[in-house]
C-alpha cells in the first residue's frame, strides 16, 4: 500500500504542472530579490489585474487546442468587442450593463461565424481564424475610422476594472468564475471528455457516436463569448476602448496554453496547467518591468518561451526515434561523423 502511495507521490512530482509551479515560484522569488517593490501586495494585485484578459483568452483557448484546433482571432475579437461595447454605451445610449450583455451576445455571434465555417464547411481552423483575425480587427478599425476612442465611462463601470471588491481586484472574481466554469467543463463533464477524444482521434470520436460537430462549435462560440467578456474588462481597466485593444493577445494565450502542458496536437492538457502558464508569463512580464528591463523584452521572451516549450514537447519523441534508428541500423555508422 505504501509502495502505491509513494509511486503516486512520485508521479505527482514529475507532472508538468508541478514543475511549472516550481518555475513560477522561483521566478517570483527571483524578481522579489531584484525589484524592491515587486513583492508588495499592491504590485501583486497589479499583476493580477493586467493578467485577467489574457488569462480569460488562455482559458478558452485550452478546450480549442484540446480538440486539435486553434483560434487566432481572439485578440482581434477582443478589440472589436471593446469598440462595439463603447459604441453601444455612448452612441446607442445603453447602460453599461445592458451594453455588456449585448456585447457578450455579439461575441457569441462572432464565435459562431468561426464555428460554422469550421464545422459546416470543414475548413481548417487555422485559415478560418486567420481570416477572421483580419476581419474582426478591420471592422473595429472601420467603425472607429482608426481614431475614435471611447472614454469617460461612469465610475460604476470602472469599478469593474480598477477597484477592489471583497479584498480582491473586482475583475478577479469574474476571472475566477470563468476559470471554475471552464475547469469544470473540461475536467468534470462529458463535454471535456469529448474534446479530448476529438483531439486524439476525430474519426474515433465519430465512430463512438459523439456529436463531433456540435462539440467543436461549442468551443469556438465559447471563445467568442469570453473574448467579449475580456473586452469589457479591458475597457473597464483602462477606462477607454480603442480599435487596437488586445493586439497580439492570441499569441500570449496560445503560449500560456502550450506552456501549461497542453499538446498543440490535441488531446492532452489541463486547465490548471494553463492557469500556471498564464501566471508564469504574467510574473515574467511584470518582473522584467520592475527589474528595469524594457517592456519589449517580455514580448520577445514570450515568443522564445513558446518555441522552447514546443520543442521540449517533441524532444523526447524525436530522441527516441533517433535512438531506435541508430540501434536498429545494421550497418555501422560512419566514424567520421
Amino acid at each position: 500500500m505504501s509502495e502505491n502511495s509513494r509511486s503516486r507521490w512520485k508521479s505527482l512530482l514529475l507532472r508538468h504542472e508541478t514543475a511549472l509551479l516550481f518555475v513560477v515560484v522561483i521566478e517570483w522569488l527571483c524578481f522579489n530579490a531584484i525589484g524592491p517593490r515587486f513583492g508588495t501586495l499592491d504590485n501583486n494585485f497589479d499583476i493580477l489585474r493586467h493578467t485577467v484578459e489574457i488569462g480569460l483568452l488562455a482559458l478558452v483557448m485550452t478546450p480549442i487546442i484540446l480538440t486539435g484546433g486553434i483560434d487566432l482571432s481572439v485578440g482581434s475579437l477582443l478589440g472589436l468587442c471593446a469598440i462595439l461595447f463603447g459604441k453601444l454605451w455612448r452612441d446607442a445610449g445603453l447602460s453599461p450593463f445592458a451594453a455588456g450583455l449585448v456585447t457578450l451576445g455579439l461575441g457569441a455571434l462572432a464565435g459562431g461565424l468561426n464555428a460554422s465555417l469550421i464545422t459546416l464547411l470543414r475548413l481548417p481552423p487555422l485559415i478560418v481564424t486567420l481570416g477572421t483575425y483580419s476581419l474582426f480587427r478591420g471592422v473595429a478599425e472601420a467603425i472607429t475610422r482608426g481614431a475614435d476612442t471611447f472614454t469617460n465611462f461612469p465610475a460604476s463601470f470602472l469599478f469593474l476594472g480598477q477597484e477592489r471588491w471583497l479584498g480582491l481586484p473586482t475583475q478577479m472574481w469574474l476571472f475566477c468564475g470563468v476559470a471554475v466554469v471552464v475547469w469544470l467543463l473540461v475536467h468534470r463533464t462529458t463535454f471535456g471528455r469529448s474534446f479530448r477524444a476529438i483531439g486524439f482521434s476525430p474519426e474515433g470520436a465519430r465512430y463512438a457516436g459523439l456529436p463531433v460537430r456540435s462539440r467543436l462549435a461549442l468551443v469556438y462560440v465559447l471563445a467568442g463569448v469570453v473574448a467579449a467578456l475580456a473586452a469589457i474588462i479591458y475597457t473597464a481597466r483602462l477606462g477607454q476602448a480603442k480599435a487596437d485593444a488586445g493586439t497580439g493577445y492570441e499569441l500570449f494565450a496560445i503560449t500560456a496554453v502550450v506552456l501549461g502542458g497542453t499538446s498543440i496536437f490535441g488531446g492532452v492538457g489541463t486547465v490548471h496547467g494553463t492557469l500556471l502558464g498564464v501566471a508564469a508569463i504574467a510574473v515574467l512580464n511584470n518582473g522584467l518591468v520592475h527589474a528595469r528591463q524594457p517592456r519589449e523584452a517580455a514580448g520577445m521572451l514570450t515568443g522564445a518561451l513558446l518555441l522552447l516549450a514546443l520543442s521540449a514537447g517533441v524532444a523526447p519523441k524525436l530522441w527516441a526515434a533517433w535512438r531506435s534508428r541508430h540501434h536498429a541500423s545494421p550497418s555501422p555508422a560512419p566514424k567520421s561523423t
Binding site: 471528455r193 469529448s194 477524444a197 486524439f200 482521434s201 474515433g204 457516436g209 459523439l210
Partner: peptide, 23 residues
C-alpha cells in the same frame, strides 16, 4: 483508428458511447 481511442484510459473508452446514460 476507429474502435478505441488509444491514448485514453480503458474506462473512458468503455463509457464513450453511453455518456448520456451514465453521466
Amino acid at each position: 483508428r476507429h474502435g478505441v481511442v488509444l491514448e485514453m484510459p480503458v474506462a473512458e473508452n468503455m463509457t464513450m458511447a453511453v455518456h448520456r446514460r451514465i453521466f
